[in-house]
Design a protein around this nucleic acid. Structure first.
Length: 586
RNA sequence: GUGCCCAUAGCUCAACUGGAUAGAGCAACGCCCUUCUAAGGCGUAGGUUGUAGGUUCGAUUCCUACUGGGCGCACCA
């Protein structure tokens, strides 16, 4: 409809420029927007305001000329000129109610595929280190990333979801060593557990499973383990050198195969836990990408070589540096240390290159807000590799602070009192979690109130929306009790009977769905859809209270039920995109 | 110290990406169940959009400087 009106304006402008009102080289963007106030009609355009200067005319006078030059259209009831020179368009009832027919016909396909882009896009999100279970901080990134990916797909953009598994590096060695030390404890070895080790209960479980499978094969004496190991921090030493010495000792005493057993037991167990967790959260990935694979297949070396050949690398004090400052970064970055090990950033560069080589037109990274300092160096790497930095997109997700009513839920990794995503899901349910996480703009801090998420009343937006859906379903059940059936065709044939204010408002709201979906998708802002669904539910509840559906007048009854059914369909479509269920009964 | 993000009703947040009188929900107050689920609806009240400038027909939105908060600034992952 917007496009149709824009076309009409465009035709009018053409007429005016042919008549010499303004020169033909003036080509304005024709903006048609939804009106905020019903008295302003259904749509409004500001063309007269933007054209006033080049046409050297008073905007209201120009608006008058434009409306007079508009081609005749059966969809327009009338136009008005208002305010400083807005043109307000009033649309006929038939063209407004047509949206109901489209929704009924297209069902879950309604509003999809309008992004106008078929650029293959990769969305990489969560990508938490596989060193422990996901916590609530990861939950927001998960819900946001999944919603963005699903929205893009719905808008017609080809999408792949990917999880980058950080299965290389020091933290993984500390993890494997932690499991081994817990394993040793199974044989009554009195180890003082390193302060920097992973202390979670899940480590004990993994250690026990290794003991079940391999018995005491990897048991070593306390003397062998601790010989010449520097003191830990509580004993007046340094926690980092202590744990690093222990990880080296583990590899010495266990041989490659033995060490790999602990390493893989930890990785497999934790990763499958993360996978299950996300799956229960309604999130699945097309690919789980191993960081380690970048090292073993030579991608890291080849990425470094490319930068070397292009002359962006230099050596200093034995380290190999990438001159990222050439591309706007704050400081240069090490890619290979003097000890020969490549840095985490080197893997990131190789991974980026790998993504583009797989043919993605755009790569979207979703990071916690604390990672914003990485954007500049990644953009720099992108440019240095020879790719347009516009193709690399980063969206930051702020932390969610948990509240239980007024009380802030204290979380601290150090004390191990962090809340896991699984615990959150078990407490408030998947639907409330998924919805709450995406109701706020991603770059806004948000308060997540556990009590509110569990409330079963209109205070809780997710119940409010789901209840609207259930209410429509309930009407169908009640219909049977009156021995009536819903005649959709009869309903569609009498949409002109839908003339109350509530009905008009609801229909107008329904007609906005396609552009809300598209906007939410292309701007990576799922909160737009979440808020829209709240408004739609609100319009439906108002309607439901004011106008009765189960009435003797068959024409009106069928028309109203058809409108309700269209509303149910949109609620269902929208909730599905956000990963939320649409219950038929509350 | 320096860079990025944020600041809107008492509280939690919106505002179609520069449009008309800045909107919802909580909390407060007043109504509506012999009628399809009151798990709901209707209404009242609540604002100098952090401060000061600037850009223009028009600014919550863009620019600059302040104020206050969050985060980053490793040869860590």
């Amino acid at each position: 409809m917007k496009q149709h009106i824009a076309d009409l304006i465009s035709a009018a402008l053409k007429t005016l420029s042919e008549n010499g009102i303004f020169s033909a080289d003036v080509q304005p963007d024709i903006m048609v927007e939804n009106t905020r106030d019903k008295s302003h009609g259904d749509f409004a355009s500001n063309v007269a305001l933007t054209l006033a200067k080049p046409a050297r005319r008073n905007p209201r006078e120009l608006a008058q000329l434009i409306t007079e030059a508009l081609p005749i259209s059966s969809t327009l009831e009338k136009t008005e000129i208002a305010g400083p020179g807005f043109i307000n368009f009033f649309v006929t009832q038939e063209s407004t109610t047509a949206v109901i027919e489209q929704i009924i016909a297209q069902k879950d396909q309604f509003g999809r595929g309008l992004a106008g882009s078929n650029e293959r896009t990769q969305v990489e999100f969560v990508s938490a280190n596989p060193t422990g279970p996901l916590h609530v901080g990861h939950g927001r990134g998960a819900a946001y990333g999944a919603a963005v990916a699903d929205l893009l797909e719905a808008a017609g953009v080809p999408v792949e979801r990917e999880y980058y598994v950080n299965d290389a590096g020091r933290q993984m060695n500390i993890l494997a060593t932690s499991v081994w030390l817990r394993y040793l404890e199974q044989f009554d070895t009195a180890i003082t557990f390193p302060s920097n080790g992973y202390k979670g209960d899940y480590i004990l479980d993994i250690a026990a499973s290794v003991a079940d499978a391999h018995g005491d094969l990897y048991n070593r004496s306390l003397d062998d383990v601790m010989r010449d190991i520097p003191a830990d921090e509580p004993q007046g030493g340094d926690k980092d050198s202590h744990i690093d010495a222990l990880t080296e000792r583990a590899q010495e005493l266990l041989s490659a195969e033995g060490y790999a057993i602990f390493f893989n037991a930890a990785l497999d167990s934790i990763l499958s836990d993360i996978r299950d967790d996300l799956s229960e959260f309604g999130i699945t990935y097309q690919k789980w990408f191993s960081e380690l694979s970048l090292n073993t297949n030579g991608d890291v070396d080849s990425a470094i070589n490319i930068l070397q050949e292009k002359g962006y690398l230099f050596e200093e004090e034995g380290n190999l540096w990438f001159r990222s400052t050439d591309f706007g970064d704050d400081k240069d970055r090490v890619v290979r240390r003097a000890n020969g090990l490549t840095t985490y950033f080197a893997s990131d560069i190789a991974y980026l290159k790998n993504k583009f080589e797989r043919g993605f037109e755009k790569v979207l990274y979703i990071w916690g807000a604390d990672h914003h300092g990485y954007i500049a160096r990644m953009k720099a790497a992108c440019q240095a590799l020879g790719y347009d930095p516009e193709r690399l997109l980063v969206r930051l997700v702020q932390f969610a602070i948990l509240y239980r009513g007024e009380e802030r839920v204290q979380m601290s990794t150090r004390s191990g009192s962090f809340v896991t995503l699984r615990e959150l899901r078990e407490e408030v349910g998947k639907d409330a979690c998924r919805f709450f996480y995406v109701t706020r703009k991603a770059d806004q801090h948000m308060d997540f109130d556990l009590e509110l998420a569990k409330t079963e009343s209109k205070d809780n937006p997710i119940y409010y929306i789901q209840y609207a859906h259930a209410r429509v379903c309930s009407i169908h059940r009640k219909l049977a009790e009156h021995s009536w059936t819903w005649d959709c065709d009869a309903g569609l044939a009498h949409l002109n009977r839908l003339d109350t204010e509530y009905e008009k408002d609801l229909i107008t709201q329904l007609s906005k769905y396609p552009e809300i979906l598209t906007n939410a998708a292309v701007n990576y802002e799922p909160h737009l859809l979440a808020n829209y669904l709240k408004e739609l539910a609100n319009d439906f509840h108002s309607y439901y209270n004011a106008n009765k559906m189960l009435i003797d007048d068959a024409e009106l009854r069928n028309a109203r039920i058809t409108l309700s059914e269209a509303t149910r369909q949109i609620l269902n479509n929208g909730l599905t995109l956000l990963g939320v269920n649409s219950p038929e009964q509350m």
